[in-house]
Write a protein that binds this DNA or RNA. Sequence first.
DNA 1: CGAATACTTGAGGCTTTTCAATAGGTGTGG
DNA 2: CCACACCTATTGAAAAGCCTCAAGTATTCG
Lengths: 234, 234
Amino acid sequence: MRQMCLPASLDRVDQHKLFSIFSSSPVPKDGFAYLENAPFQHLYLIRKGAVKTWSSNPNGDMQILGFHLPGELLGLDGVADSRHRCNAQALVESQLCRIPYARLDTLASEFPSLRMRLMNIIGREFLLEQEHIVMMSARPAIERLALFLQTLLRRVEITVGPQRILTLDMARWEIANFLAVASETVSRLLAELQKTKVIRINRRDIEILDLARLIEISGQDVGELPCFKEARRG
Amino acid sequence: MRQMCLPASLDRVDQHKLFSIFSSSPVPKDGFAYLENAPFQHLYLIRKGAVKTWSSNPNGDMQILGFHLPGELLGLDGVADSRHRCNAQALVESQLCRIPYARLDTLASEFPSLRMRLMNIIGREFLLEQEHIVMMSARPAIERLALFLQTLLRRVEITVGPQRILTLDMARWEIANFLAVASETVSRLLAELQKTKVIRINRRDIEILDLARLIEISGQDVGELPCFKEARRG
DNA sequence: CGAATACTTGAGGCTTTTCAATAGGTGTGG
DNA sequence: CCACACCTATTGAAAAGCCTCAAGTATTCG
């Protein structure tokens, strides 16, 4: 399984040690993996489902910082000062794998290959943040949306292989918030992409009819980015 | 010195080991610390000056991903797959401290306190990325700009203590690019902030006349964020 | 001192937002 | 299984904010 990228760096016996610190953590739709300001104790590997991370400012408005898919790591926001800086909430019923950070750290000090692997994963999460920034800086909103769809498709493909249909586990307003546009804009632009035969919309299922055109609209092929290539290899 | 936050976690003798792997790296204005796609070998601690990191897409347009100040760490974009994913270019003549990553990793495996400190610093860089996202999501451009000025002020204050005057080492167009607005918009909004007596502009020196109002416009007080509080303590 | 560069300011146009109304889906209880 | 209510998504029209283009001013550097 792809989400086993952490254990993959160890041999059989040592893998056992790693597995022994994991614990399973089922989260219902809209349930929280952790809350803002909660003490940071665990990292979470997503096994199944989808999770959004968000923070809110004093005015109370939410900013969605990321959507997290199976095989991806959750909780790094807590590493800096041992408190979580955002909320992690399940978009759909999800299965997480809870990893006590202190014990992972101990194991990491023991096994250089695990340490290296962990750093790679952290580095990848760092690159995903940068991708989000690049996406938000794409000025015409249609470009942002195209980048969003393309990126999500690539990430799904890492774990389940090539796909024609992309299931959006998040609501329109959540996509809009993530991209910093109005939800009506997302609706309108999705409709436009459908009218121009780039995608076909069926509720939250998006069929990619013309990937080449989607890439063209995006302004770049994110499949070429190392953070996706690397993940496919590793 | 503040930028010594890495050594601070070690005792005298062990600090010596750490210092021995550092090497000084002066970079002239507009010079590069590293280039996109270059092999990742070092992290850089900024001692003096200011550095911007940027990436470009196939269309050739640049996206500035961050401005980096003394005491901050540079180069984490390379951790994921051992290639740098962006360019690091000095805004002014700068002094960097070059740290061979492989050797730092070895030392980190030896000293838990160093490992922990390193992870804290990495976690903080991660939070700074998230701050950038929050900033870009602030919809009225004036809010983005206010957040930008406030954040920069807080970061400068971490190393040199409370300041009334903020020196912008970057050009207007670089601020604009970073915030994903037009450079004319930055000019206009800075002028507006001056007219309303929030700041006073003297070329690239910005005197903060009314911090409370600046925070109000921003919609949040970033000085309250743990990633700044923590840094002040640590 | 002059040329080149960076910044500011103005006017018009276009994208996106906002507000409002409608359509479509989901879920519950009869 | 259907009817009704509620919620989400879509669509339209008007307005606002920001960008583009263009000209003018200031600043830097040789």
